Computed example of a mutant assay.
Amino acid sequence: MNKFKHFLGIDVSKEYFDAVVILNGNNKKTFHNQFTNDFKGIRSLCKWLKDQDATFDNTLVCLEHTGMYSKLIIKYLTGYNFSLWVEMSLKIIRSIGVQRGKNDKVDAERIAYYAMKNADEATIYKAPSMSVEKIRKLLSLRDKLTTTKACLIRNVKELKTFDLELSKLLDKFQKNTIKGIEEDLKKIEKQLDELIIEDENINKIFNQATSVPGIGKITALFLICFTNEFTLYSNPRQLACYAGVVPFEYTSGKSVRAKPKVHYMANKKLKKQLHLCALCAATYDSEIKEYYQRKVAEGKNKMLVLNNVRNKLIHRVCACIREDKMYEKRQIA
């Protein structure tokens, strides 16, 4: 039996958010209101909830993950000690069944109903530390700058084949831009190093993760950010599923017999980083290299084996964090 009497669903947009509260677990007894998406609006929400006798200790608040638009609500409601459940929109949509039509009020009501129906499975939001927030933003900016730099260089290289004079002209104009991006990337790398050193827990986790052969600096930081310092997933398989490296069976009756395959719903950034790590480990780590070559020699598909390596890396990192020690290679007698 869960401790919550009331269930609040919030549908967030840029300027406003709609709130629907279900009182005493009775979905026939709902109240709706709309507030501005700012501190004044959040204070009005708290006052409105108090009038409904819905307080921080008896109310479960549920909202969809909408990026920056929900940051203010999450920040202040956690500050007011509300139990907050930040859920994937797709999970909410698919759990409700066939629905026709939508508006902000209806969406907020559906979120509230989802929270009430699945309260026993609620994952209470734990705010990341300031260091993790900074690392996440710096990694995002680093990714954008790296992509921009690669795009500029690629365009000039491709143009050389067709128009050498024009490619030289473009190269001349974008040279300072690329130089500026490279300088900014160096500053970001330096700032990331400082943040790792300053936070004792992040520094410990980072060193443990990077002790696994193949896991580099950026991948370790991605893992720290996406797992909130390895607190969001209770076992390695859950994290591997989130990263999209676990194959699932796909059969039905006698007619459908497809090969096991990974699911398309995954954290693509993390999956990409793990793929690069797997390639590195299969090239330079003797144990993984021997495993990779043996499986390929047995006739296994190379991408299948690489996916197994990605899975192995996640399990090794999680084992290091769980056991609170650096990775050690097995000694073969």
Rank of each mutant, 00 (worst) to 15 (best):
D57S: 06
C46W: 13
S95A: 03
E298V: 06
K40W: 15
S252W: 05
K186R: 06
K312T: 04
I10G: 10
W48G: 00
N228P: 02
N228I: 03
D163C: 02
A115I: 06
A127Q: 13
R136K: 14
K175T: 08
D184G: 07
L8R: 06
L139D: 00
V61I: 13
K168N: 10
L84G: 10
H275R: 05
D120K: 01
L72A: 11
Q208H: 08
E158V: 04
R100L: 15
C225W: 15
E15K: 03
K50G: 13
D143G: 08
S70D: 15
T219S: 05
D57G: 01
P128Y: 14
K47F: 13
L145Q: 06
Q208T: 00
Y16P: 00
G67W: 02
K269M: 11
I314H: 00
K289M: 11
W48T: 01
Y292P: 07
K168H: 14
V20I: 09
E287Q: 13
L185M: 08
S83K: 14
I205Y: 08
L276M: 15
L185G: 05
Q273S: 13
K40N: 04
A54L: 07
N228F: 12
A278D: 03
V61S: 03
N33I: 04
K75Y: 08
E64T: 09
S167Q: 04
D199V: 03
I197S: 06
C62M: 12
